[in-house]
Amino acid sequence: MSSNGAGMGHLTRLFSYARRLDGDARTYLLSMSQAVPVAARLGHPFEYLPSAKALGMPPGRWRGMFVDRVSETIRRVRPDVVVFDGTWPYQGVDEIREKNPDARWVWSRRGMWRAGLNTEQLAKAEWFDRVLEPGDLAAEYDAGATVGEPAHRVGPVTLLDVADLESREEARAALGLPQDGPLALVSLGAGNINDTSGDLGAAAAALAALGVGVCVTVPEIAATGGPAGGDVHLVRDYPLSRRYRAFDLVISASGYNSFHELLRLGVPTLFVPNTATSLDDQEGRARYAADHGWAHTLPALSVGEAQPLLADLLADGAAMAARAQAADPGNGAPEAARLLLDLATGETR
Rank of each mutant, 00 (worst) to 15 (best):
D291A: 15
L11F: 02
S71Y: 09
P37K: 07
A344D: 09
Y141I: 08
A206I: 06
P50N: 07
L49V: 09
L341W: 07
A173H: 01
T224H: 05
S167K: 03
S71E: 15
A327G: 08
R245K: 03
D136G: 00
L265R: 10
V212Y: 02
Y256L: 01
T275Y: 12
G5P: 10
R109H: 14
G5N: 04
G7R: 03
P50F: 08
R242W: 03
P45I: 04
L207I: 03
A306T: 10
Y256G: 00
L262I: 13
A54M: 05
W127R: 03
L298N: 07
L301A: 07
L341T: 01
R114E: 12
R349N: 02
G332V: 08
A202M: 07
N118E: 14
T297R: 13
S197L: 01
L159E: 06
A40L: 14
E95C: 12
G317I: 00
N118F: 14
V147I: 07
V147N: 05
T87L: 11
Y256P: 04
T158I: 08
A39I: 00
D102G: 13
R285Q: 12
L165P: 09
D136N: 11
G60E: 11
G189S: 10
A321N: 06
S16N: 00
A228R: 07
L55F: 12
Y28R: 12
G60I: 13
R26G: 15
T12D: 04
V232R: 05
R323E: 15
D281N: 09
R114G: 15
I96C: 13
A319F: 06
S258V: 06
V131R: 00
N257D: 12
S108M: 15
